[in-house]
Computed example of a mutant assay.
Amino acid sequence: MRGTVLSVTTLSATTSSFADVVRSRHSVRRFLPYPLSPSVIRGVLQDAQAAPSNCNTQPWTVHVVSGAARDALSTELLKADKEERFSFDFTFDYADFGQGAYLDRAHDHAATLYGALEIPRSDREGRKAHALENLKFHGAPHVALLFMPVFGDGVRVAGDIGMYAQNFLLSLTARGLGGIPQTMLGMYADTVREVLGVPAELKLLFGISFGAADLEARENSFRLGRVPLEHSVVLHDTPGVFDQ
């Protein structure tokens, strides 16, 4: 099936408005196996490259992995997980969310996801098996690994990578495609660097699996909500914004 290449014209003949693109973007958790055409991938990368960055440093180094290289990377990631060879460049712990809104939203996310998949809370093996789909890139034909240098505490560089990633994801959506940012891939940073030949000074923030969504898959049957603006935005002498 990898011999079938999807072009942008195969997927969408119309141009969506910016608002439509932003509000329709969602994380795709099951993909069709067909690779995208080189011109589509290049277009997405060019859109992502237009992202702003602090002092125009453009600090991203992106490895796009497909085909046999993708399969080899997945094999090594699954092996690293089985052997519990975790290697974080940046910390991640649910406990850091504290007791409050952030943890509640994370729990709501898990409940929505596993509810859609009909995996009960008590089914630890089922949840583990689904989590490992991250290391299989959810069936996507391509994955982009986003590496960054660390200047100072790294926060501003990570912000730049986030803006690059958002451009990348919105470009996919505008083309009728999909992607999913995956923090979990960053939990095996040493394995990824070794497989791809990436120098140690470049740190892995996360990856984005991407391709054409499998619209029939149960994993893509739900959408996650967003909190009301009033929960995130404080207005100063900006009347009327929350009136509607």
Rank of each mutant, 00 (worst) to 15 (best):
T191E: 04
H26A: 06
E83R: 05
G3F: 12
L202A: 07
N134M: 10
Y94I: 08
A50T: 12
A165L: 07
R124Q: 13
Q166G: 02
D160A: 10
A131Q: 12
G186T: 07
A111W: 05
R30M: 14
V22L: 14
D243M: 04
Q46G: 10
S53N: 06
L196R: 10
H231I: 03
S171M: 04
R25S: 03
R175L: 13
H138V: 13
L113A: 12
V234Q: 15
F86G: 01
A111G: 01
I119K: 07
F206R: 00
I41Q: 08
A189Q: 09
A189D: 08
S171K: 00
R30F: 04
G115S: 13
F88D: 05
V143A: 15
G176E: 03
A13E: 15
D96S: 15
V40G: 00
R193H: 12
F18V: 15
L73G: 06
K79N: 11
P38C: 11
F90I: 05
L113W: 07
E125N: 10
E83G: 07
T75F: 04
V44M: 04
L202N: 06
L235C: 15
L145K: 03
A140T: 13
S66Q: 15
H130K: 13
R70C: 02
F151S: 11
L177T: 11
H26C: 06
L77R: 01
S87E: 03
H142G: 01
R226N: 05
E76T: 13
P149E: 13
V192K: 12
L196F: 10
E194M: 03
G100W: 06
H231D: 14
S27E: 05
A116D: 05
T15Q: 15
V21W: 11
L6V: 15
V233T: 12
Y164D: 02
D81W: 08
L78H: 09
I41R: 12
A129V: 09
S66W: 03
V150C: 08
V28W: 00
G139C: 10
A48F: 08
T61K: 10
F147Y: 14
A50V: 04
E125M: 10
H26S: 10
L235W: 08
S87N: 02
P38M: 08
C55S: 14
F206T: 00
A140D: 07
F222N: 03
E219F: 07
R105T: 05
P120D: 08
G159Q: 14
D243F: 01
M148C: 12
